[in-house]
Amino acid sequence: STEALVRAPLPRELLKVLGPQSGSKAAAFTEAFLGSSLQRPGNHDLKNLLTHKAVILGYARPKKQKTKRSSKRAKGLTAQQKKALKVFQIRPEHQRYELFLPLHDLWRRYVLDLCAGLKPTCSPQFVQQKLLKADLHGAIITVVRSKCPSYVGQSGILLQEFKHVFKIITREDRLKVIPKRNSVFSVEVNGFVSHIYGSRFEQRASERSAKKFKVHGSIDL
């Protein structure tokens, strides 16, 4: 029977080959047996399979092909070219206060939307912070204090704002250039009057929107 065959002692020929005294012969037999029994691809080495060593495979992400972007950028006009072309110059026939009243109306609506309607419950600090970063082109500004007495009382619609000066048109149709430094300006919107210290306001309109202003108790002119 099968059980009797399993329990039968090994023949002497196999005992000599597989016995404990012949370890090298047993290892050779095991390797030959496995080599004939295992189905392996031709490119695999049997000795590498029997050593049970882990193989670390290298991996590299495929490189993305960089699209060539044109290095040429549209260059704007230089300061000398703008001056030669008179880009910022307002012609005498356009220096009329009435022509810029619609611009002032647009600015008032812009500030009302910016300050959530300018309700009576709005705090002056809230309105002040909004106006400090707002675009003032079209606002009516008035010089309330200045080291130069001739500037005090000058009022008009702001047409152009530069880093160091305001350019306004007065009710008398006169174009005035007022330096920001050493002057204090007032801006009125729906009864809210805000004062601007020009010495702390020497930035361009585009730069002022990202600037953090500090609260000062008083500033000497």
Rank of each mutant, 00 (worst) to 15 (best):
L15M: 12
G76K: 09
R171G: 15
I219E: 06
A84H: 06
C115M: 07
F100H: 12
H52M: 02
V177N: 15
K66Q: 15
Q160M: 10
N190C: 14
K25M: 04
P124A: 08
G138E: 09
K68S: 10
V55E: 00
S206P: 01
E98S: 07
R40I: 14
L18K: 02
G191I: 00
G35P: 02
G35V: 04
K130N: 13
L38S: 09
G42K: 15
S123R: 11
F192G: 00
H216I: 12
E207L: 08
R91N: 15
V17Y: 00
F100A: 08
Q95M: 12
I140L: 12
K64W: 02
L136N: 04
S146T: 02
L175E: 14
P9C: 03
Q125S: 14
E207R: 08
G138F: 09
V17H: 03
S123W: 04
G156E: 08
E207T: 07
I196H: 05
S186G: 03
A210H: 13
L15A: 15
I140Q: 12
V143S: 04
F166I: 10
H195C: 10
L101Q: 07
T78R: 07
Q81W: 01
W107H: 08
F29C: 02
P62L: 11
K212R: 10
P179K: 03
N190T: 07
L46D: 10
G191D: 04
R145L: 06
E172M: 08
A8P: 01
